[in-house]
Amino acid sequence: MIKLKSNKQIEKMGEAGKLLASCHQALKKLVKPGITTLELDQFVENFLLERGATPAQKGYMGYQYATCASVNHEVCHGLPNKKVLKNGDIITIDFVVDLNGWLADSAWSYGVGTISKESQRLLDTAKKALYKGIDQAQVGNRLGDIGYAIQSYAEKKGYSIVKEFIGHGIGRRIHEDPQVHHIGERSTGTTLKEGMVITIEPILNVGMPYITMKSDGWTAITFDGSLSAQYEHTVAITKEGPIILTEQA
């Protein structure tokens, strides 16, 4: 069941979103060669706790960390660890903020030091694909319009889209209805209504769209070892248009 949010509830989610966005802004300065993903994870947890919030992922379905940290060919749900990031790596950091019982969710991909032109093009395209999807998050449009916009743009640029991992509704729980696919056909799927709050979070691969899982049971990686990147925002559907609750300054 899709749970529509009132303006007041969206405002509360927006407060969580602003905190999340400010944490990502701080992370930008920390993502450098020599740091570990575990250190970044600990920074995020402390950042949130110091501001009266909690990392909603920690403890969710047994997950032990405040963030997911996925490096290079890791598609998503990478486990923070003590491996040092190297110049030229790309990393996606994904986390959910719980502030006074209301949640916001955002993933962002970062280049570590100086990255290749291929990596930068992937990041630029993945980010643009996200915003192409957000542009379609209008009252009266349908979820297929979001998926179509993302898919058509990404594939035109030569990238594939991971189909197994999708966006979702969000509110007091991390995952609510509806499911938000990043591929689709125009004018299909659930109609978007005022008060819906969803995540849009496409994952683009340089190579094939297929994935496999690491033995840790969490980390998804590209089947062919190609690079992967993801950007995600939490978006409220309003009569004035989509409002990005996790937009960075």
Rank of each mutant, 00 (worst) to 15 (best):
Gly207Arg: 12
Cys76Ala: 14
Gly59Arg: 05
Asp135Glu: 15
Trp218Met: 11
Ile115Ser: 08
Ser228Thr: 14
Ala249Trp: 05
Ala66Cys: 12
Leu123Ala: 04
Gln138Lys: 15
Glu50Pro: 06
Phe43Cys: 10
Ile161Tyr: 03
Tyr63Ala: 02
Lys127Phe: 09
Lys156Ile: 02
Val97Asn: 05
Gln120Asp: 14
Pro33Lys: 10
His233Ile: 01
Arg142Ala: 08
Leu27Lys: 06
Gln230Tyr: 02
Lys193His: 08
Thr238His: 00
Gly189Thr: 06
Ile237Phe: 01
Ala26Tyr: 11
Asp224Asn: 09
Val97Asp: 01
Ile146Met: 11
Glu240Pro: 01
His181Asp: 13
Lys58Asn: 15
Thr212Gly: 12
Thr199Phe: 04
Arg142Tyr: 13
Met213Pro: 01
Gly88Val: 11
Gly140Ile: 08
Phe43Gly: 09
His168Val: 13
Ile237Ser: 00
Glu74Ser: 03
Ile166Lys: 08
Leu245Asp: 00
Gly241Gln: 04
Ile134Gln: 02
Ile90Met: 08
Asp216Pro: 06
Val44Ser: 11
Leu4Val: 04
Ser152Leu: 07
Phe223Arg: 13
Lys8Ile: 05
Val180Tyr: 03
Lys5Phe: 07
Glu155Phe: 10
Glu39Asp: 14
Lys214Arg: 15
Ile203Arg: 06
Gly217Lys: 10
Glu15Lys: 04
Pro55Val: 09
Lys86Gly: 14
Asn81Gln: 02
Thr191Ser: 12
Gln248Ile: 13
Ile91Thr: 06
Glu185Thr: 13
Lys86Gln: 15
Leu49Ile: 14
Pro202Phe: 04
Glu39Ala: 15
Ser187Gly: 06
Ala53Arg: 06
Gly78Trp: 02
Met196Thr: 04
His73Ser: 15
Ile166Met: 11
Gln9Met: 01
Gly144Pro: 12
Lys156Ser: 15
Ile174Thr: 11
Asp145Phe: 13
Thr92Glu: 09
Arg142Glu: 13
Gly88Cys: 09
Met1Lys: 12
Met208Phe: 10
Asp41Gln: 07
Leu30Trp: 07
Leu245Thr: 00
Leu79Ala: 05
Ala229Gly: 06
Gly184Ala: 04
Gln138Asp: 04
Thr114Glu: 15
Tyr210Ala: 11
Ile198Asp: 01
Glu176Phe: 04
Asp124Arg: 07
Ser119Asn: 14
Val197Asp: 00
Gln9Tyr: 02
Leu48Gln: 10
Ile174Asp: 04
Leu204Ala: 05
Ala137Thr: 13
Val84Gly: 07
Leu20Gly: 00
Ala66Trp: 08
Leu85Ala: 07
Asn7Trp: 00
